[in-house]
């Protein structure tokens, strides 16, 4: 019997801080993403190579998603949304590497991502509407809705955590069970399904982050920022 995928173990300690496997894998992913970015953006030119064109296509696609979902100029939100998409996507697909468990299969990583989205939502809401205006959104359409809106804000953040964690963890869990039962080749279709699920969940998480942040920004997203929206 394999060990529980829900279990988390410290690989080593940096002083009082225990470095667990998700953290180590995340560092590996960071190294991969940053190193790859440096390599890919090393020789950018006005006449792009195929590699540069693919990179620009990725960035412009993310910008297009931001523009379509949030109805806003994408420049301000691109780093956050792009980082979320790339990190979750590569984290989910890190299961392809033998012996590596996706960081997103652990709830601490998903909670960290959802916490960042929550903070971004509050930041952009306050930036766009002001503190009073942002707080006033909780009283819409009436003051009676204040408790429900507060609960909704919390629960939808939790829903993001649970959705991502549940999908990725379940995939890892199922593959682990199948591997323990039948061994080689049989889990391959399930792994492929897990990859698809991982890509879809990265997209869903990112879209939800855009929807929540865009909803918090409100008029800023539909008004002022819309002026510099590129067609």
């Amino acid at each position: 019997m394999t060990e529980s995928p829900l279990a988390i173990y410290a690989l080593f300690h940096l002083g009082p801080i225990a470095v667990t496997e998700p953290v180590a894998v995340t560092w590996g992913l960071m190294l991969l993403l940053v190193g790859g970015s440096i390599l890919l953006t090393r020789r950018l030119a006005l006449h792009p190579t195929a590699r540069q064109a693919a990179l620009e296509l990725l960035v412009t696609t993310i910008e297009g998603q931001i523009r379509d979902t949030m109805r806003v100029a994408p420049a301000r939100y691109l780093p956050l949304i792009g980082t979320l998409l790339l990190f979750i996507f590569f984290a989910n697909w890190s299961a392809l590497v033998p012996g590596v468990e996706p960081p997103t299969a652990h709830i601490e990583t998903d909670a960290a991502l959802a916490l960042i989205v929550f903070a971004a939502m509050v930041y952009h809401g306050v930036r766009a509407r002001g503190l009073r205006g942002y707080l006033a959104t909780f009283a819409e359409p009436t003051y009676v809705m204040v408790p429900l809106n507060l609960v909704e804000t919390i629960t939808r953040t939790f829903s993001m955590i649970v959705r991502l964690f549940g999908n990725v963890m379940s995939g890892v869990f199922v593959i682990g069970i199948v591997l323990s039962l039948v061994g080689l080749l049989v889990p391959v279709p399930l792994m492929a399904l897990d990859l698809l699920t991982g890509a879809v969940q990265a997209y869903i998480f990112t879209v939800l982050a855009m929807v929540f942040i865009g909803g918090a920004a409100g008029d800023d997203a539909e008004g002022k920022d819309n002026k510099d929206r590129t067609p």
């Binding site: 801080i17 953290v23 992913l29 960071m30 940053v34 780093p79 990190f87 990583t109 960042i116």
Partner: peptide, 14 residues
């Protein structure tokens, strides 16, 4: 602690 580290990691990655 993992939550904190991952939050910092994602922010640094961002």
């Amino acid at each position: 602690s993992t939550l904190a580290l991952q939050t910092v990691n994602v922010l640094v990655l961002l």
